[in-house]
Structure formats: structure tokens, C-alpha cells
């Protein structure tokens, strides 16, 4: 099946725009549902970020702490991240 190049380029454009839009969102991962007070504390701490478009997600694989993502930028404050850093350091010493 031949794909119409016009459709192909439109589709690519659409996907790129979608990714671009997604990049404006801030994703916050936490192991449990954060209550409003916790959310406010996080917002206060990172007041340089635009919190109008924020998504709070639950991911219990990070064990404890939170991870904040915006586009390709990531602030890792989770126990999982710390532990994997530690295992990496141990691996290097070995």
C-alpha cells in the first residue's frame, strides 16, 4: 500500500505538535496519591515552574519521594533514583 506523501507529512506534523504540547506539561510521579497540602508544598518549592499545566501520577516503583518531569528535563528525588545511583557507584568501585 502506498501512503500519500501529503498525508504522511501531515501526520508527522500532527505528531510533532502533539509531542510539543505534551512537553509543556509538568509530570509529577509519586508512590501514593498526594494530598493538596503536599502538592502546594511542591509548588511553593519549585515556584519557577509553570504549574498551570501539571499532571500528578502514581508510580509505586519509585518506592518513596517524587520525580518531577518537564519535557526531557527531570528532577529525581526518589528513593529508587538514589538507590540506582548507589548501585552504580558500587559497580564502578568494583
Amino acid at each position: 500500500m502506498k501512503i500519500n506523501p501529503q498525508i504522511k507529512s501531515d501526520l508527522k506534523k500532527f505528531l510533532l505538535e502533539k509531542i510539543q504540547k505534551e512537553k509543556e506539561f509538568i509530570h509529577v510521579l509519586s508512590p501514593y496519591k498526594l494530598d493538596n497540602e503536599e502538592k502546594n508544598q511542591i509548588k511553593k518549592k519549585f515556584n519557577n515552574l509553570n504549574w498551570d499545566k501539571a499532571v500528578f501520577q502514581i508510580d509505586d516503583s519509585i518506592l518513596a519521594g517524587i520525580i518531577i518531569k518537564k519535557g526531557s528535563k527531570i528532577i529525581d528525588m526518589s528513593l529508587y533514583g538514589k538507590l540506582s545511583n548507589l548501585s552504580h557507584t558500587l559497580y564502578e568501585i568494583d
Binding site: K23, G71, S72, K73, I74, I75, D76, M77
Partner: peptide, 27 residues
Amino acid sequence: KPKLIAEEIGIVTEVKDGIVLLEGLDA
């Protein structure tokens, strides 16, 4: 106090002979 560092993260999409292509890593 624990330092808060914003890291640049990318995800590997393709692996070839000695070369990888990644998504993300905007900056």
C-alpha cells in the same frame, strides 16, 4: 541539604553498530 539537579534525560529508540538514536534530550 540534598542538591536538586535538573537532569537531561533521553530514551534510546534505536541501537545500531556502535551508534544509538535517542528521543528527548532537548537541551
